Simulated scan of single mutants.
Amino acid sequence: MAIKIYIDQGHNPEGINAGAEGFGIREQDITYQVGHFLFDILSEDYRFTARLSRPTPQTTLGYSNTSSLKERVTQANTWKADYFISIHANASENPDINGTEAYVSSANSAAWYLAQNIVSEIVRRTSTKYNGVFTRPSLYVLKNTKMPAVLVELGYITNYEDNQRMIDNPYQFAYGIYVGILNYLELPQKNTDL
């Protein structure tokens, strides 16, 4: 039975629930691209089946911030996903703040250990700074999902170096999430010749 991964590409293309911006780059474009790469990688591995919150760049969910978040959670819960991965890019008023981090609803949970593996692997592959895993039980997508849920902040869109890494190598961020999932599940990396 394939493991079901719901990939939530954070934010909408524009307007309602749009994301952060930095150096002329929009968060929702980065999250769309990384999510799509992750979907492709998982789809090539028979052990997984994946679903995207935004199958196309124009896909818009909901009519307000709350309804946009609710629709993502409802899709994952209805599909009975095994894991929920929400992809984001962070932002700060301080352009020096940088690095990769993740948020989960509670410490020492399945999501917590999954998040640690994902952050570690992204950092290893992209050379971002390791910021760790934090609990944020109030975040809608973490509070309302019925499966382990991780909100990954790939890097800071407002930090020039992180910004360039996300633009230049979205595939490595996606592959880092994939290998983080494999490491958490103690699954070997698939032989690409198979």
Results as ranks from 00 to 15, higher is better:
Gly10Met: 03
Pro13Ala: 03
Gly19Met: 01
Ala20His: 14
Gly22Trp: 03
Gly22Met: 11
Phe23Glu: 08
Gly24Trp: 03
Arg26Gln: 13
Ile30Tyr: 08
Ile30Arg: 05
Leu38Arg: 01
Asp40Leu: 13
Asp45Ile: 08
Asp45Met: 09
Thr49Tyr: 03
Thr49Met: 10
Leu52Asp: 00
Leu52Glu: 07
Ser53Met: 10
Arg54Pro: 01
Pro55Trp: 07
Thr56Ile: 02
Gln58Ile: 08
Thr59Arg: 06
Ser64Leu: 03
Ser64Cys: 05
Ser64Gln: 02
Thr66Trp: 11
Leu69Ala: 11
Lys70Gln: 14
Lys70Tyr: 11
Ala76Lys: 00
Ile85Ser: 06
Ser86Ile: 07
Ala89Cys: 15
Asp96Asn: 14
Val104Leu: 06
Ala107Val: 09
Ala107Glu: 15
Ser109Lys: 06
Ser109Ile: 04
Ala111Val: 04
Tyr113Trp: 14
Val119Leu: 08
Glu121His: 04
Ile122Glu: 00
Ser127Trp: 05
Lys129Gly: 01
Lys129Pro: 00
Tyr130Trp: 08
Asn131Ser: 12
Gly132Ala: 02
Thr135Ala: 13
Arg136Phe: 08
Ser138His: 12
Ser138Gln: 12
Val141Asp: 09
Lys146Thr: 13
Leu151Ile: 11
Leu154Pro: 00
Gly155Trp: 06
Ile157Ala: 07
Gln164Phe: 02
Gln164Ala: 07
Gln172Val: 00
Tyr175Glu: 06
Tyr175Met: 00
Asn183Arg: 15
Pro188Ser: 14
Asn191Lys: 10
Asp193Met: 12
Leu194Thr: 14
Leu194Phe: 12
Leu194Arg: 11
